[in-house]
């Protein structure tokens, strides 16, 4: 369903992604792990063109963008197939929780307001924020903001949701509430790609785990394989720092 082939990205002379190939099937939950600076966030941001890959091809749901010379229309079309949940939430600051979720539906999908409203309320209730519809982002905690962010992404009915370290800027007490929402929607069969540092969460929720280092995919496979018996030395070294059964609280 999603196919990345030979994705390359350079900043000036420095190449940070060295030709990444990755295939994600429908309903897959892919966790991308790796040390800081390994290029995992850059790769994720290439998928919806918040970063411009210098070379390669991105295919989502049968629509292919050739990254050498994409047109504006290509990029816009590609972006409409995905949604993103950001590390810093990036909720529209001047809009309420409800308006944040409605915005894409009304402006991009041209849904009538009343219909968009109903759907948005439903989604906010699903992420446990039915009582915060009219709150501005500045009035919400980090965990609540991130759950609005997830509802905003879900509203668009995307082919894939991209999570960019969704819990990295939350304090430990709030991580659980966000992870449990992600887990809930993962079970509904929505395709997701998650860049995360939450190892046990990845092990638990992901159907496929990718380990990146230095702009390349070092190893990938089922979580049971990759976590229990990593083949590459670099993966072993990286995973050694995490106790295999470390629990996270919900």
């Amino acid at each position: 369903m999603i196919k990345l082939s030979q994705i390359k990205k350079s900043y000036g002379r420095q190449e940070v992604l060295h030709g990444i190939d990755l295939t994600v099937g429908k309903g897959d939950v892919v966790a991308i792990l790796g040390p800081s600076g390994s290029g995992k966030t850059t790769l994720l941001r290439c998928i919806n063109y918040l970063e411009r890959p210098s070379d390669g091809e991105i295919t989502i749901d049968g629509f292919t963008v050739h990254c050498k010379r994409p047109t504006k229309a290509d990029i816009h079309h590609l972006r409409k197939k995905s949604a993103m949940v950001f590390q810093q939430y990036n909720l529209f600051r001047h809009k309420t929780a409800l308006e944040n979720v409605m915005e894409g539906l009304v402006v991009v999908h041209k849904l009538p307001k009343e219909q968009a409203r109903l759907r948005s309320v439903e989604l906010l209730e699903k992420v446990g924020l039915g009582d915060k519809l009219d709150a501005y982002p500045s009035q919400l905690s980090g965990g609540q903001q991130q759950r609005v962010g997830i509802a905003r992404a879900l509203a668009l009915g995307p082919k894939v949701i991209l999570f960019d370290e969704p819990t990295s800027s939350l304090d430990p007490e709030l991580v659980g509430e966000v992870l449990s929402v992600i887990r809930k929607i993962a079970k509904e069969g929505i395709t997701m790609i998650i860049v995360t540092h939450e190892m046990s969460f990845a092990q638990d929720v992901a159907s496929h785990v990718v380990f990146m280092d230095n702009g390349t995919i070092v190893e990938q496979g089922k979580p049971s394989e990759l976590f229990q018996s990593p083949k590459e030395e670099r993966t072993k070294q990286f995973l050694k720092r995490f106790a295999p059964e470390s629990a996270y609280s919900i």
């Binding site: 918040l50 816009h76 972006r79 409409k80 950001f86 990036n90 529209f92 991009v108 999908h109």
Partner: peptide, 22 residues
């Protein structure tokens, strides 16, 4: 914040929609 326009792009807005509305 740059993240605001990125979020607008991520929900599928065009540049002019993002600038006007966000």
């Amino acid at each position: 914040d740059k993240g605001q326009i990125e979020a607008a792009y991520s929900v599928g807005m065009t540049t002019s929609q993002a600038i006007r509305r966000i």
